[in-house]
Design a protein around this nucleic acid. Structure first.
Lengths: 348, 348
DNA sequence: CTGTTAGCGCCTTCAC
DNA sequence: GTGAAGGCGCTAACAG
C-alpha cells in the first residue's frame, strides 16, 4: 500500500485561514500562538485550537522572524565534520539549542577557506541571530562585519587575533603539559610533537608552545616539532620522512621514540604511515599519544587526551544566547580541562 | 589590538536605504539583486553598486523567501552523525546544494525518534522547500504531512513502507552477496552476520536477506544472524555472548570463524569486544568484514564494503531539486554499487 | 528603462 | 476580551 508523494493542494494554511475557520480575527490567532492565553476567552481559545488542528496549521517561522526581527536561527560554522571532535562539539550545541529554543544551521566548510567565507555571508543573509565559529581561515576581517551588523560571535577551540569575542575550548596549555609529562615519566626523553600548521590556529600554537616549554625545562630531554599539513601531500611526505628518521635514530640507539599528535586526524595519518612502514606491530617502534579521543583509539590501543567536547558546545551556545539577549560585558574565555587516557601505546 | 564584538548600530541596511542612497526606487534595487542587468542603465547600475558597497547591504533571504514563496532551504534529517557514513553522504549533499544554489539545514537526531519528529516539524515551520531523510524511526505517518503540504521528500539508504518517495542508497543485495561470497571463497564455511534490529530498516533487512540466501545456496555452509541493538546494553551483552560462543566452537574445531558486520558502528563495537577478550591479536580468532569503510578500517586492517556515499548524497539532492521544480513522475529508486576492499582481516 | 502599488504571513500598537 | 490597521524587507505586476 503506497501513496503518491504529493497530492493536490500544496498551499499551506495561513493565519488568515485559521482566523476565518475559527470565526475571529488574526490578532487572536497570533495571541494564541504566542501563548497569551490569559487574554483569550476559553470559548475563543477552543475554537482556535480546533481550527488549527483541522487545517493542520503551522505558523511560518520566516514571516514571524521578519516581523519581530529574530528568527531563532543560529549559525554553526565548522571546518571539518570528518573530525570526531567537531561532531562531538555539535552534540553539545544541539542539546543547548534544544534547551534554549534555537535552531542551529550547520555549515560545513570541509577545510576550505573559501567555503567558510561563503557560509559566513550566507548566514548573514539568512539573518541568523548569532554564529558559533570553529573554522580555519576566518580572520578578524571576516568576522567583524557580523559584529558590526549586530550578530554576536562565539569562537570554539581557537581565538581570532584582533577580534574580541567569547571563546570556549580546551585548556590547551595544561593538557599539553599533562601529556608531555606523561611521556617523560614513561621514560621517553625524546619526543616528537606532530602538528598541522599552527601559525593561524591558537589552540595548536598553545599546545606546541606548552610542549616545547616542558621539554626545555627537563635536562636530557629532547623535543622536536614536526609540522604536517594534511591538505598538502607534499608536506605530509616531508614530515613523515623527518619522522621516520627519528624512529631510525632511536632504534639505532636501542630506544623507542614517542610521538605526540596535536589532534586525531594527525594521529590517524601517522599511525597509518607507521603501519604501512613497520606492519601491524608498529607500536613496538613508536609510542603514540594524541589529543582528541576518537572511537578507534581504544581499538588501536592509543593513549589520548580527551576533550570535554560536549561541554564546549553547550557552553558556546550559552554564551551566544547571552549575547543575543543583549549581554554587553567584556569577551570571556572559557577553558575546560582535558583528561589523559592511558592505553597500551604509552601505558604500563 | 582588539576591538569590541558589537558597536553602535546593529540595524542593517534595507532595500529602502539602498534605494535612497542610490537616488532611485526599490524596484531597481530588486532588479539589480536578481541579476536583471539588461534592464538597467549603466549609470543607474553603477550608482546601485556603489550604494550597496557603501551601506554593506546584504539582502534579507527571509523577506525574499516570504515574498516569492521559496527560500532555497532544504532540510537534511540524519539519524547519526557519529557514523562516518552519514558525514560522507553529507559531503555529497553539500556539494550538490552548493552547485544548485540550495542551503541545507542539517538536523541531527542522535538516534532518537522523538528528535526526528521534532526536527521534521521544525523544518516544516521554516518552510524548507524539500527534505532529505536518513532517519531511524520516521514512518509514513510522519512524512506524509510534508508531502501533503507540498514539501517533497527524498529517502537515503532506506525506504519507508507505505510511502512512495524517491530513494537513493546502496545496492544492498548485490553488496551483501559480494561480501558473503568473498568470505566463502576464503574458506569460511561458518559466518555470523551481525546486524542491528532490522525489522524497520529496509537496508539492513536487504543485507541480512541476501546474506541468508547466499549461505542457504551453498551446501556445507552455515550462516547465523545475530541481532545487536547498540542503544541497548543488555541486548549488546546477549549478542556478544552468542558471538563468543561461535568463536569458541570454531576454535574447538580448529577453525577460524568469520563475522560480517552490517555497518561500521557494529563492526567497531564487536572489534572492541574482541580486543578486550582476546587481546591485540584477536584477528587470529575472528575474520571481520564490514559494510561501510570508516577511516580506522585501514589502520585495523579490516576488510570492508565501501559505499559510494558522496554520490548518494549528491543524487539525493538532484532528485529533490527535480521534485521541487515540479517533477511529478513516479517515485524512483537509485541503487548504487558498493566496492569490496580486501584487507588483512580476510585477505590473502 | 524606471517608479508605484500591492501584498507574502505574521506581530503589534491602538482603539472598541 | 477582541479586532482593524499598519508595516517588517522584499518581489511582482502594472503603468509610465
Amino acid at each position: 500500500m503506497s501513496t503518491p508523494v504529493r497530492t493536490a493542494a500544496p498551499r499551506r494554511a495561513t493565519i488568515n485561514d485559521v482566523a476565518r475557520e475559527a470565526g475571529t480575527g488574526k490578532t487572536s490567532i497570533s495571541r494564541y500562538l504566542n501563548g497569551e492565553m490569559n487574554v483569550l476567552s476559553p470559548d475563543l481559545r477552543a475554537r482556535i485550537e480546533a481550527a488549527i488542528v483541522r487545517l493542520h496549521y503551522q505558523p511560518n517561522q520566516m514571516a514571524r522572524g521578519l516581523k519581530r526581527g529574530r528568527n531563532r536561527l543560529i549559525g554553526m560554522l565548522v571546518a571539518d565534520l570528518t573530525n570526531p571532535y567537531t561532531v562531538e562539539v555539535l552534540q553539545g550545541v544541539e542539546a543547548a539549542c534544544h534547551a534554549l529554543g534555537y535552531m542551529p544551521m550547520i555549515c560545513h566548510a570541509a577545510n576550505e577557506v573559501e567555503m567558510e567565507r561563503r557560509f559566513l555571508a550566507l548566514l548573514t543573509t539568512y539573518r541568523v541571530e548569532g554564529v558559533i565559529v570553529n573554522a580555519l581561515g576566518v580572520g578578524e576581517d571576516m568576522l567583524r562585519p557580523l559584529g558590526n551588523g549586530g550578530i554576536p560571535v562565539v569562537l570554539v577551540d581557537r581565538s581570532v587575533s584582533g577580534l574580541e569575542a567569547d571563546m570556549v575550548g580546551l585548556d590547551n596549555t595544561a593538557a599539553a603539559q599533562v601529556g608531555t609529562r606523561h611521556l617523560l615519566e614513561r621514560g621517553f626523553d625524546e619526543i616528537c610533537f606532530v602538528v598541522q600548521p599552527f601559525d593561524n590556529v591558537s589552540s595548536r600554537r598553545q599546545r606546541q608552545a606548552a610542549f616545547g616549554d616542558v621539554m626545555r625545562d627537563v635536562s636530557g630531554a629532547h623535543g622536536l616539532t614536526v609540522v604536517l599539513d594534511l591538505n598538502d601531500e607534499a608536506s605530509v611526505g616531508r614530515a613523515l620522512a623527518a619522522l621516520d628518521h627519528t624512529v631510525d635514530a632511536a632504534a639505532a640507539a636501542g630506544r623507542r621514540i614517542a610521538w605526540f599528535a596535536a589532534n586525531a586526524p594527525v594521529a590517524l595519518r601517522v599511525a597509518l604511515h607507521l603501519k604501512a612502514r613497520y606492519g601491524a606491530h608498529w607500536q613496538e617502534r613508536v609510542a603514540l599519544l594524541s589529543f582528541d579521543d576518537p572511537d578507534w583509539a581504544e581499538l588501536a590501543g592509543i593513549s589520548t587526551i580527551r576533550q570535554p567536547t560536549c561541554d564546549i558546545g553547550y557552553r558556546a551556545v550559552e554564551f551566544l544566547s547571552q549575547r543575543i539577549d543583549g549581554a554587553t560585558e567584556a569577551a570571556r574565555d572559557c577553558l575546560l580541562a582535558g583528561e589523559l587516557i592511558v592505553r597500551a601505546s604509552t601505558g604500563r
